[in-house]
Amino acid sequence: MKNLLTLISGLLFGFGLLLSGMADPAKVQNFLDLFGTWDPSLAFVMGGAIAVTMPGFWLVIRRNKPFFNNVFHLPSRTDLDARLITGSAIFGVGWGLGGFCPGPAMTALPLAAEGTLIFVATMLTGMAASKYVLQRRDSRV
């Protein structure tokens, strides 16, 4: 049951991305192309997602604990540090250049466009590299 619900979560997420057109990098880039072929669809995706997530989280988190876990793993930090800004800025540049972020890239992976395969390979490498640098940095402190 636990595994099935997790699988359904992943499927729902992927279906949402496909239905909303977000697995198409051209549509994402067009959202960012205000002075060109602008397509505001992405704002509607975020709007729809937040409209469900905000009340949903509120209801769920009022419970003592999740169904299959002892605690809710919620980020508790509220400070804006340099790492958050630098990382997000770098992420945004890649997002604009490729039109892919991690969710859509994984969803589009089975469609096996050459560009998607390359993107996912270098994305996973970049993630591991980032993790490695962070761990080394933190272990030195």
Binding site: T6, F13, S20, G47, A49, V52, G56, V60, N69
Partner: peptide
């Protein structure tokens, strides 16, 4: 896009409810 976004939201809520 609104509908697809809603599915993404449903996925996020389900994952929070089941695994936190």
């Amino acid at each position: 896009s609104l509908l697809g976004g809603g599915l993404i939201g449903a996925s996020a809520v389900l994952l929070m409810a089941t695994h936190g």
